[in-house]
Design a protein around this nucleic acid. Structure first.
Lengths: 202, 202, 202, 202
DNA sequence: AATGAATGAGTATTCATTCAT
DNA sequence: TATGAATGAATACTCATTCAT
């Protein structure tokens, strides 16, 4: 019985988070109302407060769970490869894939209301920094190993390169969002992107 | 007299925009109040409405003027060079410089409230797209010319490379902001960044 | 079995009332929540509604039972004495004692939310009037008998004197509550109080 | 011009306080709404917040101003007399008068919401204690002087007697409120009250 | 009988905008 | 033109009460 109830709660939670994600993405933190999120998820306003402390907590939870999932997917994708080349390719490919599929998250993050403080958004900000650091670290580690193994040029600044890679991929996601998803990411683009990083332009 | 009045108005306008920039950057669009901006600039609340239609208009104007100035600086920097290599170096160097000096603008943009619609923010968005497109175009043109001149590798996808470059630089700015400007951009980092793009990693 | 059930119900009721008393005294009617009272008493929220119609009913019951007990103690104390002097002394002494021991009740009453109407609080109010009248009546009766017996000065207005006495004692209780119980009622104070009433000040 | 504006603000303030007093007395702190007070005073809701920080501040101000006025009247009444007897009579007479005319204040105080803390109500509470202390002090001083002058019996506990007096008078006010003002305070009652204190009952 | 999750009505407060002076 | 007082719409959050289990 308890198990059933827990499943219920868990489903309720997921339901609310899914609807909150859509509405926060569509309207931003401020214009999204608790009443709208609740009714969209099929609950009364008060019910949201049984699972989340307040609006900011709900907002933070949406972001945290999505960034967690993204980071996990990246880690898994990289883990399936062995050589540094294959890993960096897998990393970038998966990063492109993740950003493509997480339009809501990206929109939420780009809308902001996240960067600056206040009790809860401070938590979001720290999480974003941490998740970003971990993404950088994944790429940096691969590059470092690639250099050790002789796969990559010695002398490259692994951290700077890792950050450049991340920034590049994120920019395509940003560009896609601001152009209302008119920009479509093809396999070809990903390959060209990889090639640029691999061979350089000169 | 008219001239004098215009100069007066113009000074008032600039004054207000400067204070609005700081406050929007510090608090974000929603938490910044018209009353605070007005008093900070030494005016009465109502006076803001003589120069700007409403809060969103003021916000949009702040962004537009800053992005205009940034674009102009980029164009100038590139114009002073002749070879594609020198131009792309100048472009990236200046882009780093601009993002370093425009912490307010970056913070405003990252806070968001910009990405999505409503009468005025639509205008902001269109401007952002246009300015981004023009930045891409500048880099793309340089690259294209570099390929034609034989300075750059033939076969590279100039547009994708231009976007990657832009994304890379912007990421360093993003990273600097979220880490509360603890991350400092050195000349060395810029050089490593350039090197990565020039030589590739392999 | 019925008897057992009744005992059960009765115990439950007393338990809830005791916890409600504490919480109402500590937080006042409005800030005390049914959930808090329930959990404090070890029940589920819904269970309170099996014994009390609603929050106001619970509140009223707390007050009524406490004022009943106080009145009973007063009556008993007076009944043990025979002369008017001894009775009025016993009355005042017991009244001081009752107010000392019923800090919760006094706090509840002083916090108010009691004086004015609405279905249930009307009931509380009527009860307060009645209990006050009966306290006045007890003192008045003693005084009257004292006058008849020649123990007390003829010509005194027994009702007014009774009310003055009650007011005096209640003020000490009020004073003790508002000063956070820093004011301590000693035997000496009680004696001085009695003396003032007995001999007058002139 | 400034003077005129100030007069305006002052009038506005007084207007709001007068209406707030009535409504707080009629409904209590919690059931009185800011919207009701504002519209009753002929203003928009937001206007209340230009003169008062919040609802509690408005509430506290109502109480403070009324208790201030009451204390001033008491001081004045006593100041007009010279002998201790005349002063104590004036004090009690004025105290009865003040409580008669301040039904709203008394109702507000009796409803409570005042006794216990929270940022602002703490301020109210401290004020109530102070005002009570000062009322006690006025009576105590008179009694003390009366004893020194030989007008009053030596050996009386002046402070306890002062408190008894205050409690007595306040009780009549309390009684009047709870009986819906059916109880009318006549000159005769006041005289009987005074007599009891002067001569004692024995 | 007991539970406690779900409900949704009710309200203080903020702040962009207006307009009389 | 400049002012800043007045406006009033808009919304998060609480908690008494209900009722399916």
């Amino acid at each position: 019985m308890k198990e059933w109830k827990n499943r219920e709660v868990s489903a309720r939670r997921a339901e609310i988070l899914a609807h909150a994600e859509k509405i926060f993405a569509a309207k931003g933190f401020h214009k999204a109302t608790m009443a709208e999120i609740a009714s969209s998820a099929g609950f009364a306003t008060g019910s949201l407060y049984q699972l989340f402390d307040n609006k900011e907590d709900l907002f933070a939870t949406v972001i945290l769970e999505l960034t967690d999932a993204a980071l996990e997917r990246l880690t898994n994708a990289v883990g399936k490869q062995t050589t540094a080349s294959a890993q960096i390719t897998a990393f970038i490919t998966e990063l492109f894939s993740v950003t493509q599929k997480n339009t809501n998250l990206l929109t939420i993050l780009m809308r902001g209301d996240v960067v600056v403080a206040s009790r809860v958004s401070h938590r979001i900000r720290l999480d974003l920094i941490e998740k970003t650091e971990r993404q950088i670290a994944i790429a940096e580690d691969i590059l470092q190993r690639g250099v050790s193994d002789g796969e990559f040029m010695s002398g490259i600044n692994c951290r700077i390169t890792a950050m450049s890679l991340l920034g590049g991929v994120r920019f395509f996601a940003f560009y896609r969002i601001i152009t209302n998803e008119e920009f479509v990411l093809t396999q070809e683009i990903i390959e060209d992107f990889l090639q640029t990083f691999m061979r350089g332009i000169r």
